Simulated scan of single mutants.
Amino acid sequence: MRQVEALENDLVTLLPDYLAPHVSVGAIKGEVLTIFAGHSALAARLRHLERGLVQDLQQRGWPVSGFKVKVRPVMKPPAVPKQAKVSAAGVECLRTFADGLEASPLRDALERMVARHKRP
């Protein structure tokens, strides 16, 4: 575990700033290092940097002769649905506006909005 962490720290210091947060180290099998990229464009960029990165890692003492890049998207936490806050005066304006409209989908939507934001 410490070895992977040390290798990841070395790799992150060698990578450009825009790549480092989106890259993580897998494992070393033989002399092949597995690197996980956040998306396919980063994976392609890492493949272009392979020769220089391998040489730099070898200079730091890592027994690496090449690497394999795999795409592993970073999972984002689910977005919290937005909840609009409407003041009492705003609710009253919406109610007045809805009352002045003929029956229509717009009026129905405004009435639902007024009901949802009505204060107890």
Rank of each mutant, 00 (worst) to 15 (best):
L94I: 07
R60M: 11
F67R: 07
R45Y: 03
K70L: 04
L42H: 14
V71K: 00
F97M: 09
F36L: 13
V64T: 12
V54Y: 05
G38P: 02
D56M: 04
K85C: 14
A103F: 00
D56I: 04
L94K: 00
G52P: 01
L49G: 00
Q59D: 12
E92H: 15
E102A: 12
L49P: 00
G52S: 02
G100A: 12
K70D: 05
V71T: 06
V64I: 15
P81D: 07
S40H: 09
P63K: 14
K68C: 11
A44R: 15
R72L: 02
P81I: 06
A37L: 13
E50H: 00
K70N: 06
R72P: 00
P81K: 07
L94V: 09
A43V: 11
I35Y: 09
V80I: 14
V86M: 09
Q83D: 15
V86W: 02
L57R: 02
L49S: 01
P105I: 09
L53F: 02
G66W: 04
L106T: 11
V86F: 05
L46V: 07
R60T: 11
V54K: 05
L42I: 15
E102H: 12
R45P: 03
V86T: 14
L53E: 06
L42P: 04
P78G: 03
C93T: 13
A84T: 15
R60P: 05
L49Q: 04
P78A: 07
R45S: 07
P105Y: 05
L101T: 13
K70E: 07
A79E: 12
R72S: 03
A88W: 10
S65M: 12
V74Q: 03
G66Q: 10
M75F: 05
K70S: 05
P77K: 00
V64S: 08
P73K: 03
G61D: 01
R60W: 03
A84Y: 08
F36N: 06
V71F: 01
T96E: 09
A89N: 13
E92S: 15
H39F: 13
P77Q: 01
G66K: 06
G66Y: 03
L106K: 06
G66C: 04
K85L: 15
E102Q: 12
A98P: 09
A89E: 15
G61C: 01
K70R: 14
T96V: 09
A88S: 15
A43R: 15
P81R: 07
G61L: 01
E102S: 12
R47M: 04
G61T: 04
P105V: 13
G90P: 06
P73H: 03
A41M: 11
P63W: 06
L42F: 14
A41I: 14
L42V: 14
A103Q: 11
W62S: 08
V91K: 04
D56H: 01
F97H: 11
G90M: 10
P77T: 01
L106Y: 12
D99W: 00
G100I: 07
H48G: 02
K70G: 04
L94F: 03
K76L: 05
K76I: 03
G100K: 11
Q58F: 02
G61P: 05
A103I: 09
L53S: 04
R95F: 03
R95M: 06
A79F: 04
